[in-house]
Every structure is written in C-alpha cells, then in structure tokens.
Amino acid sequence: MSGVITVPEIGTTDRGQFTVVPARHPWRWVAGTAVAAVVILLLVSAVSNPRFGWDKVALYFRDVAIVNGIGITLFLTVVCMALGVGLGVLLAVMQLSANPVVKASASAYVTIFRGTPVLVQLLFWFNLSALYPEITFGIPGVSLDANQTITPLAAAILGLGLNEAAYMSEIVRAGIQSIDQGQGEAAGALGMSRIQTLTRVILPQAMRVIIPPTGNEFIGMLKMTSLVSVLAVPELLYSAQIIYSKNLQVVPLLLVASIWYIIVTTVFTVGQGSLERHFARGTSRSVPPTAAERLRKFFRVHSTHGSGKGGQS
C-alpha cells in the first residue's frame, strides 16, 4: 500500500516562524566528565605521593648538567636528522634509478639498516676499532686511528644518522612516487634537466607528502637519542643517570628528563604544523587545525546557548 506523500501547503512553512534548536550532544559531556575525573584522580595521587619527589624535580630541573644534556640531545637530533634526510633523499633517488646496480645497492642498504635494531648498530659503530683498527678509506697516506676518530659522539651520530637514512629514504620515495608523471614530462619538455626537475618540480610538491612523517621521525629521533646513553654520551638521559647514580633520586631525575622531553617535542610539533602550512601552498587540501583551534571549535559547537543560526562548518 502506498499513500500519496505531499509537501505541506504553501504559506504554512515560512522559516521565520520557527526557532532553530541546536543539536545537543549529552553523551559527549558524560564521556568528558568521566575522563576528567580519572585525570584528576591521577593528578591528586601524583601530587600527594611524596615519593614522586617534586621538590627534587624542581631542584634539578635547571641543573647545569641537565641543561648541557638537553643541548647535546638537540645537537644529536638535528645532526642525525640532517644526515638522515640528506642520505635518505640520495637513497630514494637511487632506488628510483634505472641503473640496476645503483638500485640494488640502495635497496640492500635499506634492508640492512631497517632490519637490525638501532641499539645493535650503535654498538657496532662504537666498536668499529675492533673491525678496522686503522681507517684508510683505501687512500694511500690516509691513516686514522679508529679508536681516536670514532669517539662515542661520532659513533652516536653514525649509528642514528645512517639508520634514519634508511627510514627517510622510504618516506622520500613514497613522496616522489605520489607526484603525477605529467609533472616530470612537462618539466622535461621545457628542457629542464633531471636534477632541475627533481629539485624544482618534483620534490617541492612531494614535500606535502614527505613533511608530516618526517616530523614524526624528528620527534622519534629526539627520543631515540636517549639510546646513546649506553655509549656514555652525556645527553639528557645520561646526564640524569649520572646525577641519580650519585644521589639515588632515581624517580625525580627521570621525571626531570621526561618533562624536558615533553617540552621539546611539543615545541617541535608546533613547528611541524607551520611547516605543513607552508608547503600546502597552491593546494586546497586543508591543513589540520592547531590544538587551540580545535578547542575553540569544541566550545563553539557545544556551547549551551545555541546561536540559532543553524549548522556551521
């Protein structure tokens, strides 16, 4: 059976006679309250438990050794990422090369460095002198004592940087392959060389794809530098360890290190957002909103006094 459905009669449906009632989201408030309660409980416990040693945290927070440690952590992060990105781009281009030998070598590199733990690689570099007591680079007249050349810091940079290159090469390769083939053809038809095409046309567009995961790699690298504490490089974690090995305030000093890691990663995350905005130039793809924008939107949508203006984007 089918009844005839008709629209209401003309004149009975002037929009002005209605008041718009904004949609309520009661479950969002319930979930929000529950989570807030748990968070408050955790905070209360953290503050009231004296074993956290917050007074010690405050005492050591700006200790000279800790601040120097942050310096070394940042230095390692930046240098290893620079090495990783530079070598990663080279490896990515090699992997896309038409030359089978070049291509296979790059693939082998990636397989080896992604297939073994970074910690193992770090220890290998640290013990390089056992393999090659003298480093000659195969050039007559050049002879470096491996024990002196491969300092703990050098081993850390080689270990982290070369490992990072393997991961970066995959990210860069995916970025390059995401660009339409017509771009390279148009550049070629204009007489641009392969290098010009890569650096002026392909890579700038691939950046949009490359930057977000690279930002994650950067933050990952910042935390990964803590591994080089096993090589006794006095970065942030090892500096904290040196202090607590003397005064036995283990938890407060680990808290000091953790808080600093959070501060630095937060700063980097903000920087990452503005970089993504920059490379979104010329595209309509919307960039993810900043945390502040998200919070503002939440309160705009969920504010109790509805504006009565209907939906908003």
Partner: peptide, 17 residues
Amino acid sequence: RTDIGMVFQHFNLFPHM
C-alpha cells in the same frame, strides 16, 4: 627540447608555482 614547446591534454602546470 628548448626549441620545441609542448602542450599536454592535462595542462601539467606546476601546482606549487
């Protein structure tokens, strides 16, 4: 190639410029 101009079906303009 610099002596020969080419126009493609899908334009292939550089979108970031």
